[in-house]
Amino acid sequence: MALLDVIDLVVEFPTRRGTLRALDGISFSIEPGEILGVVGESGAGKSLTGSAIIGLLEPPGRVASGQIQFEGSRIDRLSPAQMRPIRGRQIGAIFQDPLTTLDPLMSVGRQLVETMQTHLKLSDRDARARAVQWLEEVGIPAAAERVEAYPHQFSGGMRQRVVIALALCAEPKLVIADEPTTALDVSIQSQIISLLKRLTESHGTSVMLVTHDMGVIAETCDRVAVMYAGRIAEIGPVADVVRTPSHPYTEGLMGSIPSLEARVERLRQIDGAMPRLGAIPQGCAFNPRCGRTIARCFTHRPDLMPAGATQAACWLVGGGAA
């Protein structure tokens, strides 16, 4: 059984000018121990998917329909009080900016102890010992002394290590990591990604890694979901999505990324920009930017269909062209 099942999830924002559909029928699952990458451009709905799963949608955003199942039971209809023991204990979260995630007035040790004691039955002494252990495990030098230090005394990379320790210390089964390395320099980014990968592997934790950086996804994830305008355009094993993409958007996206391997004269470009939420075209949302449209693309919205090793929401792969 999958650890997390998202079934036909719709998230809406009621506004004065009408209801905006930010997520429009998203379905995917995460298996135990799996790392699923979620990639897309700004506004594609990738962060929103993460927020919906941990029950932190900003009002007035709401789950309008569909289901989120964690270990077979629904978590999208829970009250805040019912959600609290799940968030942190079952599903952990890592956000982009480590400085806003950490409490500036509490030592990092205190924050770890508090988190663990909220979710696990631990004596003060055990919790403290575990806090030091966690800091060691995430690679903070001189952990025993630095457990008393405050967030401002750490560098950006070290803070993100503390955030990872906080997310993992209650031993959740799933971690939602939303752009965990975007605020960091490349050499630090590679340290944090390796750390996240090593720790989740050793603890058997599943990860949903949300990022706009296809390189990070390629190196880290088992499977990847490519999002476009509130829908999943393509989902499948990372090697297949990167090397033999089926959806024209994924194909364009891969071609537009400059590579270190070879220099090309011109990058492949997808003209135009992603439509705004209020102005998503009829049919396939990608049709204004797609070079291979057929009549059906302008009238009917494609759902995910099997396309080789992946699944793509495109009429060209689903027999629409035939």
């Binding site: 490349v186 050499s187 980014q189 590679s190 990604i193 950086d213 296809m214 390189g215 990070v216 390629a218 190196e219 880290t220 990372v238 090697a239 990167v242 090397r243 891969m254 990324i257 590579s259 270190l260 391997e261």
Partner: peptide
């Protein structure tokens, strides 16, 4: 060495 690249799956 540190840069994640799409050509380096896994």
């Amino acid at each position: 060495e540190a840069i994640p690249d799409i050509s380096s799956v896994g």
